[in-house]
Simulated scan of single mutants.
Amino acid sequence: MLEAVIHGMIISFGLILPLGVQNIFVFNQGALHPKFRSALPVIITASLCDTLLIAAAVGGVSLIVLSVEWVAPVLYGAGVVFLSFMGWKTWTGIPEEGEVKVLSMRGQVVYALSVSLLNPHAIMDTIGVIGTSSLQYGGGERWAFAAATAGVSWLWFTGLAGAGRLLGRADSSGRFVRLLNKISALLIWAVAIYMGMQLTANL
């Protein structure tokens, strides 16, 4: 049981640490909102979405998806389009000097849902890595593995928003946040290019 928990935590950290669309959004909302509790909607929504995807993958969706040949190319193709668009949104949505762009609770939830559940790259990571890794365990161990991976998401998003809030306080001009957004947009486009290469390899 302990082995499954540690394995789940390591895999989850490995997948969640890279700077993706979801991470960028959670961090930015933490940085832009005047109070940490104002960013709770995005933290809870992103964490719940990850938990749902992990539960589905561990519950057997991975076996179904990976057994259908056309699913992977379709997801990779959708991932290229999605990430290209999100990179553009990240770049063009950078606040100007002295401007603050914060989302309402509804806006946070809707946007977090889109970058969590409509992100083919995240879906492929969950199904292809977490789902298949869970197959080596059975019964309670498999769900302990799933709980560990999901638990990391909850802790990570909470810490990420908290780090954003600390940065928001230290960087009142918003210059660092704008620079981070530009770098983030470039990284998102780089991932889109990588997924395009994966799509080509799968055709």
Rank of each mutant, 00 (worst) to 15 (best):
I94E: 10
L66Y: 00
G79D: 01
L2T: 13
I6M: 14
P41D: 04
V152Q: 03
P18A: 12
N181T: 02
A170S: 11
Q22P: 08
L155C: 14
S116I: 01
S173L: 01
L113H: 08
I44F: 12
L180P: 04
P18Q: 01
L155N: 07
C49W: 04
I24P: 01
V71N: 00
G168Q: 02
V177Q: 15
G138T: 14
S114F: 11
E69W: 05
G140S: 15
S184E: 06
S134K: 00
V42E: 01
F82R: 11
L179R: 13
W156K: 07
Y137G: 04
R37G: 04
Q108N: 06
F13Y: 09
K182A: 15
H7G: 11
I130N: 02
A72T: 15
V110A: 11
D125L: 13
I64R: 03
P95W: 06
W70C: 05
N119P: 03
G151S: 05
G8E: 10
R142D: 09
I44A: 12
I44N: 02
S104K: 10
I94T: 13
S116H: 05
V110I: 15
A112T: 05
I44H: 03
V100E: 02
A57T: 00
R106G: 10
V129H: 07
F145C: 06
Y194L: 15
F176T: 14
Q29A: 04
G131T: 01
N23E: 06
A78R: 02
S116E: 02
V65A: 11
G138I: 13
I54K: 00
G164A: 09
A148E: 06
P18G: 10
I127E: 01
P34Y: 04
G196N: 10
D125G: 11
G174F: 05
T132D: 00
L48Y: 08
G79S: 11
G151Y: 09
V100T: 13
V80E: 02
G151A: 09
L83A: 08
G30A: 05
M86F: 14
H121A: 06
A78V: 03
I123D: 00
W156E: 03
V5C: 08
V129G: 01
A150E: 02
A122Q: 12
S38Y: 13
A56C: 12
I24D: 06
G128A: 06
I54S: 04
I183C: 14
L53A: 06
L199D: 07
V65R: 03
I24V: 14
G14Y: 08
R142C: 10
L15N: 03
K89W: 09
N28A: 15
M9L: 14
I127H: 00
A31C: 08
V74P: 01
L15F: 09
V191Q: 06
I183S: 11
E97K: 15
L186Y: 05
M195F: 15
A190V: 15
V109Y: 04
A161N: 11
S114W: 07
V5Q: 00
Q198W: 05
S172C: 09
S153Y: 12
A150H: 03
L166K: 14
F27K: 05
A144Y: 08
H7R: 01
N202E: 15
G60D: 06
I6H: 04
M9N: 09
L32D: 02
H7I: 06
L160E: 02
P41L: 05
A146G: 03
L203I: 14
P41T: 06
D171E: 00
N202F: 14
V42N: 08
V42D: 05
R142Q: 14
L32P: 04
A46T: 14
L66F: 00
A78Y: 03
M197V: 15
L203H: 03
